[in-house]
Amino acid sequence: MSVSSSDIAYIAHLARLHLSEDESEKAADNFRNILALIDQMQAADTKGLQPLSHAIETSQPLREDKVTESNQRDTLQKLAPKSEAGLYLVPKVIE
């Protein structure tokens, strides 16, 4: 499968990455090589096989419905680039 520069732009947007023109071009080149690698899969006969998400095939464990956490806002919010009044601040979200 081939990749156009608009594909690259679309993927970069989905991933919220900004690529300069130079980076885009390089990304497209790399992409083509990587796709050539992963396209080798297409030759494999996988008819009738169930996809395998995990090597271990056990069941999801369950947790008791108990509140185990206490308020750690002050400690955790020290890690934030921007906060005020207990809130994380981001540039204005326009709905």
């Binding site: 899969m41 494999a44 996988t46 169930q50 996809p51 998400s53 090597a55």
Partner: peptide
């Protein structure tokens, strides 16, 4: 496809 190949490999 990759997940199916994963099963093949296993």
């Amino acid at each position: 496809k990759a997940q199916k190949i994963r099963r093949l490999i296993k």
